[in-house]
């Protein structure tokens, strides 16, 4: 217990001191994971809507596939993206390995299935409610999917947050494709892993507490936004 209390105290001290190094790491974590989340929303949400309202051969297989991909281990994603971005790999010429861009790509691959699968569930419920009305008005399935994405925008924040939570908390993928390079690709989770390796458990735990706090702040903001939106839009 005393170790945990000590870590929390240390976390408070680090934050209070406004440590520049820490701020840089937190900022990079947010930048990478928020970018990956945005990219995954752009890719995964239309895909989820398509799976919800579309009718095409293989749709059910795709739904099962995406549900399965939600459980993809980050290390596997990291390895996959590493092999793609490595100089010897198909995308090697872009020199993206060990850059934040590589980390964004890996996290995007990791969380797009999550966002797509959760979006599909939300849009399927919407589709049940709106299907007849939209078809009566003459909306094609594509158009209906777009309309429902917009209509469900506040419910979909949950999908985005789930993706962000997974992205910002994972270490396996960013460690491999980012390389945990000091000042370049070192994010909160890889720092925690490094401090654990050094046996500095209180510092590692303190960083973990800061990570949780950051995620909580973002979730609280999203929650308040959603409450407000539901009051306003009904």
């Amino acid at each position: 217990m005393s170790e945990i209390a000590q870590s929390l105290a240390l976390a408070g001290e680090l934050v209070a001191a406004g440590d520049a190094k820490l701020a840089e790491i937190v900022w990079l974590s947010l930048k990478v994971s928020l970018s990956a989340t945005a990219l995954s929303c752009v890719l995964g949400m239309p895909l989820g809507a398509l799976l919800a309202v579309g009718r095409f051969p293989g749709r059910h297989s795709l739904i099962v596939l995406f549900n399965g991909l939600m459980g993809l281990p980050p290390v596997v994603v990291g390895l996959l993206v590493y092999l793609l971005l490595s100089r010897a790999g198909p995308l090697g010429q872009f020199g993206l390995l060990f850059t934040p861009a590589a980390m964004i790509i890996a996290q995007t691959v990791l969380i797009t299935p999550i966002i797509a699968a959760l979006t599909r569930q939300v849009i399927e419920d919407e589709w049940r409610e709106y299907r007849e009305q939209l078809r009566s008005l003459g909306a094609s399935r594509m158009r209906a999917g777009r309309t429902l994405l917009w209509n469900a925008r506040f419910s979909l924040t949950t999908a985005g947050l789930a993706g962000f939570g997974r992205a910002v908390a994972e270490v396996g993928a960013v460690m491999i494709v980012g390389g945990n390079i000091d000042g370049v690709t070192r994010v909160m989770t890889t720092t925690i892993a490094l401090e654990t390796s050094k046996g500095d458990l209180p510092l590692a735990l303190a960083l973990g507490a800061i990570l949780v706090a950051v995620v909580l702040v973002i979730n609280t903001g999203a929650f308040i936004l959603r409450q407000w939106a539901e009051r306003r839009w009904g």
Binding site: Y130, E132, Q133, S136, L137, T147, N151, W233, G234
Partner: peptide, 14 residues
């Protein structure tokens, strides 16, 4: 040209 009104009105969040 046709239109339909349902038992329970279905409104978009707008």
């Amino acid at each position: 040209s046709q239109a339909m009104v349902f038992q329970r009105p279905v409104m978009l969040r707008a």
